[in-house]
Design a binder for these strands. Structure first.
Length: 690
DNA sequence: GGCTTTTCGACTCG
DNA sequence: TCACGAGTCGAAAAGCC
């Protein structure tokens, strides 16, 4: 644990350490059995660092022989007053502690019974003939009990995969249906079942299933529970959502599944536990009314894809290549030798050893050569600027030209929106990531020209929330100045500068506004003088005075941030306006740095997470409102929606989009959007209403 | 020794 | 020693057969 200065053994990280301890039981035993351990390098490291290994263990071991005056007898455990204790557990929603306590002090046999039942018993697999399938499917069609569905697919990218088979579980029985060569009649009946909203289905990763089924033009309906999304809301920081992992949560020690039917019957046996936990945590509405309905919308967006002008992208790549080659030659000339500019190691050697530039800071493996460092060295040697340019171009070429080209299918790219990844409730985007297409620097921004509507003559419409996070902060804090600023629709950074620097708004200089803007951003992140100072390039002390001045003028914000941290510490969790939950174990971490990290999470998550909630609600509204029009939702970039629309519908679509976004969820300050339209994602012009 | 996986450092976005 | 939340790339290091 580097943050506690515990050295450990080089080359042994969490993975290797756990493996060794699992096998040998103790550090000492590992060291005695070095010969038996596979891996020559590993053996050598352990031999050469025996002392470090033992020291590390010593440092991390709790001491039990501290002299103390506490009377141990007085500390002996006595059974608590059941009523008081149960009341306390109830107050703090410590459901699982309550369960454990009841198990150990087992009053009723009922609790014991539940514990017994925790073992997984696979439901018998029924094999059906074609006729039997038709009967069974008709029965489910008429039934109201939920059907648990699992599915196998061709794998890989969901956008060109197919379902290969189904597993089902219901009322103590399980079934398998080979989809690839199913009888046509059975197929038809099953499709009808899938598309019937009245037949409730419980599944894992419904968005994947929506996607796969869209490939064969089947519209899945009636998803009554998505267990992956349920697990995500219960703990948004978990990272495994495979069925097996979801089952293990409530039935520990389960091995692997033999087939789709076993998977289905296992999921069936934990589905109710998930529902109960959701209910206990107050997350059911968020699941059923926000996340679950969002999945099919995201699947549609992914399936639709966004068109890419391949010719233009290739030309852009050729221009970059020319420029990269020129820079490369100049850099080699300045360095006096050729080397791999993309290697931080080799670059560090050239800059700090050969050319003798002063190293600013270090990474764990050598000299730091990041943009901040190089920025400092710009004036000292002409090579530095060229390296910065080279890096920028090289990123554009590798990730955005070559990376994007590799993802194109029939002139379009189809991202995958991840709905269970972020700790705050945001979406993320992968393969390709379309949420980080360059915009800040002009050269990179030009790339946006290649993103166009699929149909000739259509236009792109982009609508983004203006300052949504600061508006949410205003709503939470009810700070008088901040609320007023938004009610009057002022430029919030200028107003902040005016307050902090004590000048009228019209006298605010560009530099004052820039600093105020940094403070406003910092607030959302859980402001530190160190971070603000680094961001602004001013001494930490100066940053501190800005913060003090800010909090002097914005007392409501100050009070809110203090209160949310206090509350978060009491509960070890925070929630968004729509009740999304994030536990923050860091707040109870023994290490101070970790605890402070927890405090910043407590300040940031309700804001970032509420913004994510509002956007998700807006998407539900927008998707529904777009149905009568020739328009497709294409992308969500956190506070922006990108839509393609036929020219004759632009005016009305812009109106309904604005209406849905601005009224997605009422805050005590107005929410406003800015709308732009254009032939591609670069040439966008402000769209003015009326 | 050669191939694959993981980690690191750099860059991109809101 | 630090701003919050993400993803991808190429190089280097580590792991595996």
């Amino acid at each position: 644990d580097a943050s506690d200065n515990i050295p450990g053994v080089p080359g042994v990280g969490e993975k290797t350490a756990l493996k060794l301890l699992w096998e040998y039981g103790s550090v000492e035993n590992v060291l005695e059995n070095i010969d038996k351990i596979s891996g020559k390098k590993l053996q050598e490291n352990l031999r050469n660092n025996t002392d470090k290994a033992l020291l590390s263990k010593k440092l991390a071991t709790m001491l039990y022989d501290i002299p103390t005056e506490i009377d141990l007898d007085k500390m002996s455990y006595r059974r608590p007053d059941e009523k008081v204790f149960a009341g306390a557990l109830d107050k703090y929603v410590l459901k699982s502690v309550a369960r454990i306590w009841h198990e150990h002090h087992g009053i009723g046999e009922e609790e014991r019974g539940i514990a017994q039942e925790e073992a997984l018993k696979p439901w018998p697999l029924r094999e059906l003939s074609t006729e039997e399938w038709l009967v069974q499917l008709a029965k489910w069609q008429a039934d109201t009990t939920p059907l648990i569905l699992t599915y196998g697919s061709t794998g890989g990218n969901p956008h060109w995969g197919k379902v290969t088979g189904w597993g089902m579980a219901a009322v103590g029985e399980s079934f398998i249906l080979n989809w690839t060569d199913a009888d046509p009649e059975v197929r038809q009946a099953f499709i009808q079942l899938l598309e019937d909203p009245a037949v409730s289905k419980q599944v894992g990763d419904s968005k994947l299933l929506y996607s796969l089924l869209l490939n064969e033009e089947i519209n899945l309906r009636g998803v009554a529970l998505d267990i992956s999304l349920a697990a995500y809301l219960i703990n948004p920081t978990r990272n495994k959502f495979e069925s097996l992992e979801l089952v293990k949560e409530y039935i520990p020690g389960v091995g692997e599944f033999g087939n789709l039917a076993e998977e289905a019957s296992a999921l069936a046996q934990v589905a109710d536990s998930y529902k109960e936990t959701l209910e206990e945590l107050g997350l059911s509405a968020l699941l059923h009314e926000m996340e679950e309905p969002l999945s099919p919308i995201l699947a549609r967006m992914e399936n639709q894809g966004i068109a890419v002008d391949v010719q233009r992208l290739k030309e852009f790549g050729q221009e970059l290549t020319v420029e990269l080659q020129r820079l490369e030659q100049e850099i080699y000339a300045d360095a006096g030798e050729t080397f791999n500019i993309n290697s931080p190691q080799q670059l560090g050697h050239i800059l700090f050893e050969k050319l003798g530039l002063p190293p600013m800071k270090k990474t764990k493996t050598g000299y730091s050569t990041d943009a901040d460092t190089l920025e400092e060295l710009r004036t000292q040697h002409p090579i530095v600027d060229k390296v910065l340019d080279y890096r920028q171009l090289s990123k554009l070429m590798s990730t955005y030209v070559n990376g994007l080209l590799a993802q194109i299918h029939e002139e379009r790219v189809h991202t995958t929106f991840q709905q269970t990844v972020t700790a705050t409730g945001r979406l993320s985007s992968t393969e390709p990531n379309l949420q980080n297409i360059p915009i800040r620097l002009e050269l990179g921004r030009l790339l946006r020209k290649v993103f166009t509507p699929t149909q000739e003559g259509w236009v792109l419409l982009s609508a983004d929330y203006s300052q949504i996070e600061l508006r949410i902060l205003a709503h939470y804090s009810q700070d008088q100045v901040l609320c007023e600023s938004f009610s009057l629709n002022q430029d919030v950074h200028t107003r902040t500068a005016s307050e902090v620097f004590g000048v009228p708004m019209e006298d605010v200089t560009k530099d004052m506004r820039r600093k105020a803007k940094a403070v406003n951003f910092g607030l959302i992140y859980g402001l530190t003088d160190f971070g603000l100072g680094r961001d602004l390039g001013v001494p930490r002390k100066e940053a501190k005075t800005y913060i003090e001045k800010y909090f002097h003028r914005y007392e409501g914000v100050k009070r809110y941030l203090e209160e949310i941290v206090v509350k978060a510490k009491e509960e070890a969790q925070v929630r968004t306006l729509l009740n999304r939950l994030r536990r923050i174990p860091e707040l109870r971490h023994p290490n101070r740095v970790q605890r402070q990290f927890g405090e910043r999470i407590a300040m940031n998550t309700p804001i970032q997470g509420t913004a994510a909630d509002v956007m998700k609600l807006a998407m539900l509204g927008v998707a529904e409102a777009l149905k009568p029009y020739r328009a497709n939702l294409l992308l969500q970039v956190h506070d922006e929606l990108v839509i393609e629309v036929a020219p004759e519908d632009v005016e009305e679509v812009a109106k309904v989009v604005r209406d849905e976004m601005e009224n997605a969820f009422p805050l005590s300050v107005p929410l406003t959007i800015e709308c732009k339209t254009g032939p591609n994602w670069y040439d966008m012009e402000s769209y003015s209403f009326e």
